[in-house]
Design a binder for these strands. Structure first.
Lengths: 210, 210
DNA sequence: ACTTTGAGTGTACGCATGTTCACTGATTTC
DNA sequence: GAAATCAGTGAACATGCGTACACTCAAAGT
C-alpha cells in the first residue's frame, strides 16, 4: 500500500483505509465475534501494517464504538425513510415486518454485529449498543404515538409497546442473521412470524386496557 | 494442591478439582465472556497448573459444553419442581414470573452464561445452547398444552406461544443478569414486566384466534 | 508388601499478540 | 521549488498463550 494504485488526495486515501479497517473488522467479527478479533488480524486483512492502525483508531475498543455508530446510522436512515412512506401510516405492522427483513438483508453484517456484540462484546461496546437501543425505543415510541389507533393511549403504554417491538426486532434480526444463505422460504417464514408477534402485541394491549 | 489439606478419595478429589475448574470458568466468563477466558487463566484461578486442566477436559470447547449442560440441568430441575406445584396450574403466568426471577437470582451465573454465550460464545457452545433452548420450548409446550384454558388450541399455536414465552424468558433473564446488585425494586419491576408480557401473549392469542 | 495407576507438577517450546520507535517518501503548504 | 506534514513502514520488545514431555508420589488394586 505504499503506492495506492490510483493516487487520490491524502484525505480521501486516509478515509479509504479507514473504511477498509472498519469493513475488515466487521467481516472478521462475523466469524468469531469482535472480541476475538485482534488488532493485527484487522490490520492484515485491511492490507496495512499493524502500526498504521493507530493512525485511525487509538484502540480496538474505539474501533468497536465506530462500528456501533456506523450500524445505527444505517438503521436510523432506514427508519427515517420508512416514516416518509404513507403506506406505513395505515399498516405499520406489515410495513415494519417488511422493513425489518429488507433492512437486515441489506446490511446483514451490521445487524449481526449489533445482535452479537449487544451481549457478547467488550464492556464499552455493550454499553454503547444498549444506549443506542434505548434511544431507538424512544424514537419509535414517538412514531407510534402519532398513529391513528394509538393516539389516545397513555405514554407509558406506548413506551412499553415500543420496547416490546424493539425487543422483537432484535430477536428477529438474530434469526435472519443466523439464517443460512439462499433460503428465501425461511426468510418469508421469519417475516410472517414477526408480523404475527407484532399483531399480538398490539391486539393484546388494546384488549386488556379496555 | 500437592497435598489437598484433608485428603479425600482419589475420585472425590478429582471431582472437586473438576468443579473448581467449572466454577472458575463460570466466574471468569462473567467479566469478559467465555471466549476471552484462556485455559491458563481458568487453571490458575482453580489453583491448578495448566497441564492438569487436560486431566478433566480435552479443550476449552469441551469445558464450555460442560457448562452448558450444567446450566440447563439446573434450569430443568426448577421447571420440574414447579410443575409439581398445584398453584402453578391455575396461575401459570404469575408462577412463571416468580420462578423466572427466583431461578435467575439463585443461579445467576448460569443464566448469565446462557444468555451471553447463546450469541457471543464459540460456535460449538452457541449450537449446544440453541439446541437446548429448542428442546426447552418443546417441553414447555407439553406443559402448556395440559392447562385448562389452552387444551383446545392447535398444537402449532401452543408451540408458538411456547416459543414466545422462552424468548421472553431469555430476554428477561438478560435483564436480571445485567441488573446491578442490591436493587430489589428493579427486580420487582422486571418481574412485573415479565408478567405483563406473558399476559399479553396469552390474551392476544386467545382474542385473535376467535 | 508390591505394583500399578493417574492427578497434579515443572520446564520448555514456538507462536501471536499489543505497543514502542525511528524511518520514508508522496502530498500538501507556503 | 523548498519545507512541513503525516499515512504507512519494518524491526524489535515483552508478554501470555496452548501444548508436549518427562516427572512425582499418594491412593487403589493386587
Amino acid at each position: 500500500m505504499t503506492e495506492p494504485a490510483q493516487s487520490a488526495s491524502r484525505q480521501a486515501q486516509k478515509e479509504r483505509t479507514r473504511q477498509a479497517i472498519l469493513a475488515s473488522a466487521l467481516e472478521l467479527s462475523h466469524e468469531k465475534g469482535f472480541a476475538q478479533v485482534s488488532l493485527r488480524q484487522v490490520s492484515r486483512h485491511a492490507g496495512v501494517v499493524p502500526t498504521a492502525f493507530y493512525r485511525h483508531f487509538e484502540s480496538m475498543d474505539q474501533l468497536g464504538l465506530a462500528l456501533v455508530e456506523q450500524s445505527f446510522s444505517t438503521l436510523r436512515r432506514m427508519i427515517r425513510d420508512a416514516q416518509r412512506d404513507p403506506h406505513v401510516f395505515d399498516n405499520i405492522i406489515d410495513a415494519a415486518a417488511d422493513v425489518l427483513v429488507e433492512a437486515v438483508k441489506q446490511s446483514k453484517a451490521h445487524f449481526a454485529f449489533v445482535a452479537r456484540e449487544r451481549v457478547g462484546g467488550p464492556e464499552v461496546v455493550r454499553t454503547a449498543i444498549r444506549h443506542e437501543l434505548d434511544l431507538f425505543v424512544s424514537e419509535l415510541a414517538v412514531v407510534l404515538a402519532r398513529l391513528p389507533n394509538i393516539e389516545n393511549w397513555s405514554t407509558e403504554d406506548v413506551q412499553m409497546v415500543s420496547r416490546l417491538f424493539v425487543r422483537n426486532m432484535v430477536s428477529n434480526a438474530e434469526e435472519v442473521v443466523e439464517m443460512p444463505d439462499g433460503r428465501p422460504d425461511l426468510e418469508e417464514q421469519i417475516k410472517e412470524g414477526a408480523r404475527r408477534q407484532m399483531r399480538l402485541i398490539v391486539v393484546g394491549f388494546r384488549d386488556w386496557r379496555s
